[in-house]
Simulated assay, not measured.
Amino acid sequence: MKEFVVYTVLRIVLFLASFGVIIGVMALAFDGRYHLFWAVVLSFLVSGVASYFILERQREAFARRVETRAAKAAAAFEERKAREDAD
């Protein structure tokens, strides 16, 4: 599950980075004032769209890992089912 941890950590870092940038821009635009709720909402949106493009390689690695594990589980299930039918 290393791929899951890497992808999740990178998503969190991307969110925190976008949150920092948005807070900074809001503070500059509104004389040092910002609205925390809108900063969080905008950060989720920006980091979500950015992660789609920036973290594509990590997302693909995670998907391949999940697919491999699912194929192994399905093969093991079919093997047990075949042994049960043979009895």
Rank of each mutant, 00 (worst) to 15 (best):
residue 25 V to I: 15
residue 43 S to D: 11
residue 42 L to S: 14
residue 65 R to V: 13
residue 33 R to D: 12
residue 62 F to P: 01
residue 73 A to K: 08
residue 43 S to C: 13
residue 64 R to E: 06
residue 63 A to I: 13
residue 30 F to H: 11
residue 66 V to W: 01
residue 46 V to N: 00
residue 11 R to H: 05
residue 12 I to G: 12
residue 70 A to F: 02
residue 27 A to N: 13
residue 78 E to V: 12
residue 86 A to T: 14
residue 67 E to G: 11
residue 25 V to W: 04
residue 21 V to W: 01
residue 25 V to E: 08
residue 43 S to L: 04
residue 55 L to A: 02
residue 81 K to T: 15
residue 62 F to H: 08
residue 13 V to P: 03
residue 78 E to H: 10
residue 14 L to Q: 03
residue 17 A to I: 14
residue 58 Q to E: 09
residue 39 A to L: 08
residue 68 T to A: 04
residue 73 A to Y: 05
residue 53 F to H: 06
residue 34 Y to W: 08
residue 36 L to C: 12
residue 7 Y to W: 03
residue 3 E to R: 07
residue 23 I to F: 05
residue 50 A to N: 04
residue 50 A to M: 06
residue 21 V to S: 02
residue 86 A to I: 14
residue 78 E to D: 11
residue 77 F to D: 12
residue 83 R to T: 15
residue 77 F to Q: 08
residue 64 R to G: 07
residue 63 A to W: 03
residue 22 I to E: 00
residue 21 V to L: 09
residue 66 V to P: 05
residue 57 R to H: 11
residue 47 S to Q: 01
residue 62 F to K: 07
residue 11 R to W: 00
residue 12 I to Y: 06
residue 50 A to E: 02
residue 35 H to F: 09
residue 48 G to N: 02
residue 54 I to C: 02
residue 20 G to S: 13
residue 8 T to W: 02
residue 54 I to W: 00
residue 42 L to V: 14
residue 75 A to E: 08
residue 63 A to S: 10
residue 17 A to Y: 01
residue 22 I to Y: 00
residue 72 K to C: 05
residue 40 V to F: 04
residue 27 A to E: 12
residue 8 T to I: 11
residue 81 K to N: 11
residue 4 F to M: 05
residue 74 A to C: 08
residue 82 A to Y: 05
residue 45 L to C: 11
residue 50 A to Y: 01
residue 79 E to D: 13
residue 34 Y to M: 09
residue 46 V to T: 13
residue 39 A to V: 15
residue 69 R to S: 06
residue 9 V to M: 04
residue 56 E to W: 04
residue 35 H to Q: 12
residue 43 S to E: 07
residue 76 A to D: 13
residue 3 E to A: 12
residue 56 E to T: 15
residue 23 I to A: 12
residue 45 L to E: 02
residue 19 F to E: 02
residue 65 R to T: 15
residue 10 L to W: 01
residue 16 L to E: 09
residue 62 F to W: 04
residue 65 R to E: 09
residue 53 F to Y: 04
residue 85 D to K: 12
residue 19 F to W: 07
residue 12 I to V: 15
residue 37 F to R: 09
residue 27 A to R: 11
residue 23 I to S: 09
residue 36 L to H: 13
residue 11 R to A: 00
residue 11 R to Y: 01
residue 20 G to A: 11
residue 15 F to R: 03
residue 70 A to I: 08
residue 76 A to C: 11
residue 26 M to C: 14
residue 33 R to K: 10
residue 66 V to G: 07
residue 41 V to M: 02
residue 70 A to D: 06
residue 48 G to K: 00
residue 77 F to T: 15
residue 19 F to H: 10
residue 16 L to H: 09
residue 18 S to A: 14
residue 80 R to T: 15
residue 62 F to Y: 07
residue 32 G to F: 05
residue 82 A to K: 12
residue 26 M to T: 15
residue 70 A to L: 03
residue 23 I to N: 10
residue 62 F to I: 04
residue 6 V to R: 05
residue 7 Y to L: 10
residue 47 S to M: 01
